[in-house]
Design a protein around this nucleic acid. Sequence first.
DNA 1: TATTGTTATACTCTATAACTATA
DNA 2: TATAGTTATAGAGTATAACAATA
Lengths: 163, 163
Amino acid sequence: MGARLFDVKQSGRRARRRGESRALALGILPELIGYHLRLVQRAIFADFAESVGAEGISPGLFGVLVLVEANPGLKQQRLAEAAHLDRSSLVPVIDKLEAKGLVERRAADRRSNGLFLTAEGTALLRSLKRRVRRHERRVVENLSAREQRELIRLLGRILPGKR
Amino acid sequence: MGARLFDVKQSGRRARRRGESRALALGILPELIGYHLRLVQRAIFADFAESVGAEGISPGLFGVLVLVEANPGLKQQRLAEAAHLDRSSLVPVIDKLEAKGLVERRAADRRSNGLFLTAEGTALLRSLKRRVRRHERRVVENLSAREQRELIRLLGRILPGKR
DNA sequence: TATTGTTATACTCTATAACTATA
DNA sequence: TATAGTTATAGAGTATAACAATA
């Protein structure tokens, strides 16, 4: 029990006096992909909200706008499937986008709606996409182009049968 | 406008008659890391719920159990920080684990609690960890050991300053 | 005075079940 | 009869603000 251990204790105490604290033991967590994904997604979500979400557009709403633009006249049923949502869960989503004046429901036949962006929705989406591209650049700024492709490739191999 | 286009249309119709449908246009989404992360996390979450969640243990609750086991006597405040939760949000989490008989609050001083696993919590966690390791093997079954390490390395480089 | 845990409250996201209208 | 959208309702997860007790 010499100087070494004492120093360790001291530096621990000093660190805690500075408001830091000994790192928590994380157990098995760092071996789990899901744990890392959660941390990363938290950070991406926060950066998205800060840099893109000014108009109250979350990543999910942004995705819906993109899909409606890319598939004009899309039915709610089909969009719900694409977004892995129950069709009842999509209703308040479209309500919100319609209330913001970004999306329009147009009767396709008398029981189904085709979805379309309004002019305002198209304009806002253009701006959102610019901001999202900047956000994305920040997200991957520590990865080379090759690493970015590799990351997407590896993610695509995770539980591929389950999607 | 020859046989080619006609064939495409026909096969599209045939596919739709079989209950499939033309793939949706995804616009910019497949270029975004966040989009792929969402898909992957959905799939992992579903597999976890199916293969680990029998006792109503979500990935978040599992994480809390692991942290309490690895840091006996952990204070709620400290655990909330580690889990990126407000301390008020942690209260119902610990309530639930205590109601299940897995975790115990023991007064550390008269205003703070140290958290400990009960014997039952320790036993259940042992079983949960076995199931989580099997789940994790399924999650990465299409990745070599090298690819698994590479994936975790690349995830660690995403927005590292924001965590 | 600052910290710890708690409560009251509310908001987001999502699901299930039941209902209406219609294909 | 099956499908599209909606409504009512509920549950999980999380946050903010205010409060009591105590360091």
